[in-house]
């Protein structure tokens, strides 16, 4: 069985590899040629990132990132000209095991019983594709319960 390949993030059109040159390109020329960046610096508006990645998933295995390309463009705050262009690839990436702790949130968790019993709303008509979501379906609990 062949793996499924999927590309995420920014998409370069083949054959027209735009090259961004420091001191020649400005914010407008980059915007015009590449469009909005995939993401900007968290606290630094003058850094633009174009992130693209390809992932491969095979049957039940967890999808794996096959390659990644990040183009980071920094601009001078006043002149708006490109100061430097840095490219990162998959090799620069690292494996990080993310902290499992989470900041707690409130909110009423539906109790198990409420979910299980609150839902025997109707007896099954024939399990036929489009039947359920059609006008006039069988009883079911009142709409605004």
């Amino acid at each position: 069985c062949n793996p499924i390949l999927r590309s995420h993030g920014y998409r370069y059109t083949l054959g027209q590899e735009p090259s961004i040159m420091p001191d020649e390109d400005s914010r407008d020329s980059v915007m015009q040629r590449l469009g909005n960046p995939s993401m900007r610096g968290t606290f630094d508006e003058n850094t633009w990132f174009y992130v693209s990645a390809t992932r491969e998933s095979l049957a039940y295995l967890r999808p794996v990132t096959r390659d990644r390309r990040i183009v980071a463009i920094r601009f001078n705050d006043e002149t708006g000209m490109v100061t430097d262009v840095v490219e990162y690839t998959l090799e620069d990436g690292r494996m990080v095991d993310y902290v499992s702790r989470e900041t707690p949130t409130r909110g009423r968790e539906l109790s198990l019983l409420e979910q299980l019993l609150g839902n025997i709303g109707r007896l099954p008509g024939q399990q036929f594709g489009g039947e359920e979501n059609l006008p006039g379906g069988a009883g079911g609990p009142r709409r605004n319960q």
């Binding site: 109707r122 007896l123 008509g125 024939q126 489009g130 039947e131 059609l134 006008p135 006039g136 379906g137 069988a138 009883g139």
Partner: peptide, 16 residues
């Protein structure tokens, strides 16, 4: 078939 009410006539359903 008194459970499902799909056995009554409904023009929208006939359209579908």
């Amino acid at each position: 078939r008194f459970y499902g009410s799909n056995d009554n006539y409904d023009p929208d359903r006939l359209e579908y």
